[in-house]
Amino acid sequence: MNDARLERTIGLVLGAGAIVSFCLLAMGIAGMGVTHVGPLDRPFPPFDLNRLGSDLAALKPAGFLWLGLLAVILTPSVRVLASLLGFAVAGERRMVAVAAIVLTAICLSAALGAGG
C-alpha cells in the first residue's frame, strides 16, 4: 500500500468515525430536547460503562450522548490502528513501531484515568 492510498484510507476512517459520532450525539441531543433536559442542568449523568447498555435500551439521552462521546474520543485511536496495519502491510517497521507507541500512550491514559 503506497502512502497516498494509505492516507486516503485513513481519511475515510476518520470521516466515518466523525459521521458515526455526529449521528449518535445528534440522537442524544434530540433526546435532551424531547425530555426537556437543558445543557446546564445539574447533576449531569456520570460516565459508567456498566450503565451504557441499559441506558441505550431504555432510549435515554445519556446513553446516546456517552456512546457518541466515546466514539469521538476513540476515533483517533482507530485511525492510529488503521495506520499501524497499513504500515505493517507495507513492511515499514519504523512506522509500525511509531504507531504502536502512540496506541500504548493512549491506552496508558485510559488506564491512569480509570485508576485515578
Binding site: G28, P39, P76, S77, S109
Partner: peptide
Amino acid sequence: GVTASAGGLIYLFRGGIDPYV
C-alpha cells in the same frame, strides 16, 4: 485528535466531561 484523545480519556474517567454541554 490523538493528542486530545490522550488527555480526554483522563478527563472522561475522572468526571471532567459533562455530556449535556
